[in-house]
């Protein structure tokens, strides 16, 4: 199966290892992976701040980059939520673009959603002998309805002990530009999330969105908490031994 990777700007710029792990997982699943170079950002920072025009302008890079793709896969519930939930209405003013937006929305998947629902591949082999807790990203779980897929993948990793995260479904406080515009509220939310992660007793925190993870991880590291923060793709790839070449 041919798959086009939408890596997201956060992963591209700050967490390339997540994109690499995603590539390897898709390839290990038998997919032929392509990375259309014209892609930049889904437009969410502008969109959520009220700058619809700017969002539209940037989002067009995705409509163009993925025009010919069979399926688009991304390691972010939030960015995929943006595409699936908001693109059709964002481009409603222009029939041609609206059609392109709807086509993109219909063929774009969050990584775990794609692996579990489309490919029906839940086991990548390998083991991960650690206590892990899972933070469901708000946009992934609520906007996109991806709830059980990441857990399904984690349950198939041998020796992985999954522990409950107290108040798991509460937002971590990232919220894109919210984290800067309302930074006091945002960091207060992040602090509570970090406390719950520590209280879970987990050695590893895993999620499906780097926005959440850089927020929670940044709070944990500031507090000196010894919790490793990983994207689901990184965990699966590391367990399956697909990451040894990543360290550059």
């Amino acid at each position: 199966m041919k798959v086009s990777l939408f890596v997201t700007c956060i992963v591209d710029a700050a967490f390339p290892r997540v994109g690499i792990a995603t590539t390897r997982l898709l390839e290990a699943s038998g997919c032929e992976v392509d990375f259309p170079i014209g892609q930049t950002c889904c437009g969410q920072p502008a969109f959520n701040s009220g700058y619809a025009d700017e969002a539209r302008h940037v989002a067009r890079t995705l409509l163009e980059a993925f025009a010919d793709a069979d399926a688009v896969v991304s390691p972010s519930g939030s960015c995929v939520g943006m595409i699936r939930h908001y693109y059709p209405s964002l481009f409603a003013g222009d029939p041609a673009l609206a059609q392109a937006a709807q086509r993109l929305a219909d063929k774009t998947y969050e990584l775990s959603q794609f692996l579990v629902r489309r490919l029906e591949k839940v086991d990548f082999g390998g083991r991960f002998p650690h206590r892990v807790t899972f933070h469901p990203s708000c946009h992934g779980s609520r906007l996109l309805g991806v709830r059980d897929e990441p857990l399904e993948l984690l349950r198939h990793v041998r020796d992985l002990e999954l522990v409950d995260l107290p108040y798991a479904r509460d937002c971590c406080g990232f919220g894109g530009t919210f984290s800067v515009k309302m930074s006091e509220i945002s960091s207060s939310m992040a602090a509570e999330k970090a406390e719950n992660v520590v209280a879970s007793g987990a050695e590893v925190l895993v999620s499906t969105d780097m926005g959440c993870l850089m927020n929670i991880g940044g709070t944990l590291s500031r507090r000196g908490a010894r919790v490793r923060v990983m994207h689901l793709a990184e965990l699966l790839a590391e367990a399956a031994g697909l990451t040894e070449e990543v360290t550059a």
Partner: peptide, 16 residues
Amino acid sequence: GWTDRRDFPALGQQTF
């Protein structure tokens, strides 16, 4: 506002 109570990720050597 971010770095008051949180660390912010630095950009690495290479983008994806």
